[in-house]
């Protein structure tokens, strides 16, 4: 690979490292801070400043939090919260991929009346985020009996203009010859999809999955609206409830453990699937 034209030597490069280290500290410190806090006792946490290194209570805190300690604060076990959030994040990501791929497939590989109308109907939803239609959407959820249900948490979020656009763009790059050859061989829509299109789409699917998993995991306003029961909370909402009822008795060490476990899964997904993450980010935002 050619060297970047910006590459520097000597003092300039040392300064560049200096600024990058400072930037990384700024970016990583809040996450590091909460991790450190999660390994100390509540007494240590409440007596600032916090030590900069992990404390001796780590195992005890995590053990306590995972074996029922959180249940005593919020009424729901940490496992349940993590399970809910995982189910919602995976449900949203898979749901978006399935329905967007199906719609893009219909729009690109078939000709039917109102085809472009359908495309625009999907496209315009970009301009209608939940935030601008909070109240009436809530009413629809009540009328359909979807409050405090998993479908209620997942279904309204799986419509995806961006994923549909991305798959449409990708499908349009598939050469006509490939489809012709498949049809000569007698392949119908399903076989063409399964044997040719799906294998070619895998990197796009992975990229969209990473982005949408994070989108699902970090949802806030929607779960806040459609859940009343603590049983249905996501970990983010549960955490907010823990700190808003904070008093002298709040076991801050367990709150910190919960924070770490709320942050860790999506960070792992981003770091381990970095290549797809960057691709997904750059391409879904076009």
């Amino acid at each position: 690979m050619a060297e970047s034209p910006f590459a520097s030597r000597g003092a300039s490069r040392i300064w560049a490292h200096f600024w990058m280290v400072l930037g990384v500290i700024l970016v990583v410190f809040p996450v590091y801070y909460v991790f450190i806090a999660s390994t100390h006792s509540t007494q240590t946490i409440l007596r600032p400043p916090l030590p900069l290194l992990p404390g001796p209570e780590g195992l005890a805190n995590y053990g306590d939090a995972l074996s029922g300690g959180i249940g005593q604060i919020g009424g729901v076990s940490l496992w349940r919260l993590l399970g809910n959030t995982t189910l919602i994040a995976v449900g949203i990501a898979v749901g978006k991929i399935v329905i967007s791929m199906a719609s893009a497939y219909a729009i690109v590989f078939f000709r039917f009346p109102l085809r472009m109308v359908c495309f625009w109907l999907i496209f315009i939803t970009l301009m209608l985020p939940v935030e601008v239609r909070i109240q009436p959407t809530y009413k629809v959820m009540v009328d359909l009996g979807l409050i405090d249900t998993y479908p209620g948490l997942i279904l309204p979020l799986i419509a995806s203009a961006t994923a549909t656009l991305l798959f449409r763009q990708f499908f349009m790059t598939i050469p006509d010859e490939l489809l012709e050859a498949a049809r000569v061989d007698g392949a119908g829509p399903w076989r063409f999809f399964r044997d040719i299109l799906w294998p070619l789409s895998l990197t796009n699917v992975a990229a969209i999955f990473v982005i949408q998993f994070i989108y699902g995991w970090t949802q806030y306003l929607w779960p806040l609206l459609v859940t009343n029961s603590n049983e249905m909370n996501t970990i983010v909402i549960a955490l907010k409830k823990m700190i808003s009822f904070a008093d002298a008795e709040t076991p801050w060490n367990l709150v910190m453990v919960t924070s770490v476990l709320a942050i860790l899964p999506p960070i792992l997904v981003v770091v381990l699937m970095q290549r797809w993450f960057v691709k997904g980010l750059v391409e879904t935002e076009k």
């Binding site: 970090t218 955490l239 907010k240 924070s259 942050i263």
Partner: peptide
């Protein structure tokens, strides 16, 4: 550098 992208906005606020 990309860590914070994965952190929910509400949790960013709490941190």
């Amino acid at each position: 550098m990309i860590w914070p992208y994965a952190v929910a906005t509400a949790i960013a606020g709490m941190l």
